Simulated scan of single mutants.
Amino acid sequence: MTTICADAVETRGWAASVTMAATVFTVVTAEMLPVGLLTPMSESLHVTDGAAGLALTATGVTSAVAAPVLPLMLGRLDRRAVLGGLMVLLAASAFAAAITSDFSVLMVTRVLMGISIGGVWLLTVSLARRVVPPTAAGPATSLIFSGIGIASVLGIPAGAYVGELAGWRWAFAGVGVLALVLAVALSINLPSLPPERAVRLRDVRQVLKRSQVRVGLVLVALIVTGHFAAYTYIRPLLEPRIAPVLIGAFLLAYGVAGVLGNFLTGALRPHRALTVIAAGIALATLVMPTVGATVAGSLVLLVIWGFAYGGTTVSTQAWAHAAAPSAPESSSAVLVGVYNGSIALGAFTGGQVADRFGVATVTWLPAVLATAALVVLLAHRRQRG
């Protein structure tokens, strides 16, 4: 009987993990939809590519603020109910984005999405280890974060395909439907998840006093800002080199490589994993203007880039957990805040560079910032002896 009960608990734990992975997939797809739809969105709303990229900046800024603030506001609320409510909010904002013809209204919907995305990121990061037995915490965490890579494999390319076939608005509507389905699935598959203890502002301040945490946040800022400064504009970057109908296929190749990177670099120690990530991004983006001038070259570099960036989330989370193992929700709140703030900063900076100097110049930003991350990693290793 004990064995049967244990098996039932483990089975429900894996069902919860799959549901959380699907939730991560959905919020990442929602956040990144403008990447694959940037050109049709800018044309439909009569704005420049750089201005359309602000749709990504809006969600990033809001997520960055929401992630550290939400734990202070949620108190003792059951996290399962909170996750369900956040997915309903995501659905409502996605449907609103699908029907608006006003760019300012679209930006409001992206702000609402940002609240949902920041909250879901935070809670899935900090709750992953609680839905399965301790012995399965590592594989379950990798499974949950595979939703990020799968969003690149399926979500973003699917959005690009839907945009080509039916218009970008239907891509947002599809995300809204998926978010509603997952709100129901979360209520069924997740156990009750009261917080282990309420998060206080003092807890966040204590986490920030740890030098290991601060180094990790600097690395997140450099790598993620650089990545999104260029990746946000990947569609207009590729369009002069390949036919628009191939954009989805190229993003698919990028995403497949990202899933592999999630599992392979996620198995490495955080310092080594982040070294591989920073080096891969720096290499791929540095030679993009020359090697990427051909169709084959662009594809190869996208695969390298995708593989490198794919392990970023799980590796930075592993770094944060190792730096503050006694304060998982506080460290996750800070990490997710900086991560999403870096997405916003990258999208904004890349848009400014693209509008002023041309889209082709944006790849220099990740090349420089990823190289700076390598310098930080080297200095940190020497400091530790």
Results as ranks from 00 to 15, higher is better:
M20R: 05
M107F: 01
A370Y: 06
P289Q: 06
T19P: 00
G258D: 11
S63C: 12
G167I: 03
P366K: 08
C5T: 15
D102N: 12
G337E: 09
M1K: 07
G163D: 04
T290S: 14
G155F: 00
T312Q: 14
T57H: 04
T294Q: 09
F307V: 03
G311H: 06
G176F: 09
A273K: 05
T313W: 10
I343P: 05
A198K: 13
L154T: 02
P270W: 06
V61Q: 02
T26I: 04
F263T: 08
A179L: 00
G118V: 05
R241G: 09
A327I: 00
T371F: 12
S104L: 08
P270G: 09
R129F: 08
A91M: 06
L182V: 05
V362G: 04
A360S: 14
G163Y: 02
R197D: 11
L56R: 00
A15F: 03
R205V: 13
L89R: 03
E164D: 14
A171T: 02
V287F: 13
A273P: 01
V338K: 11
K209Q: 15
F357C: 02
G310D: 10
V213A: 06
T285V: 01
L37I: 03
V376W: 04
T265A: 09
M87E: 05
L112K: 07
M107R: 01
A92F: 11
A230S: 14
P325I: 10
T294I: 10
I281N: 09
S330W: 05
V105L: 15
E10P: 00
L33N: 01
L90F: 09
Q352Y: 07
I277H: 06
V88P: 06
F95T: 10
V259T: 12
S332F: 08
G292P: 08
T363Y: 09
A151P: 02
P236S: 08
V65D: 01
V18S: 02
V291W: 12
L238Q: 11
G266A: 11
T349C: 06
I117E: 01
Q206N: 15
A92M: 15
L106T: 01
L70I: 09
V336P: 01
P194T: 11
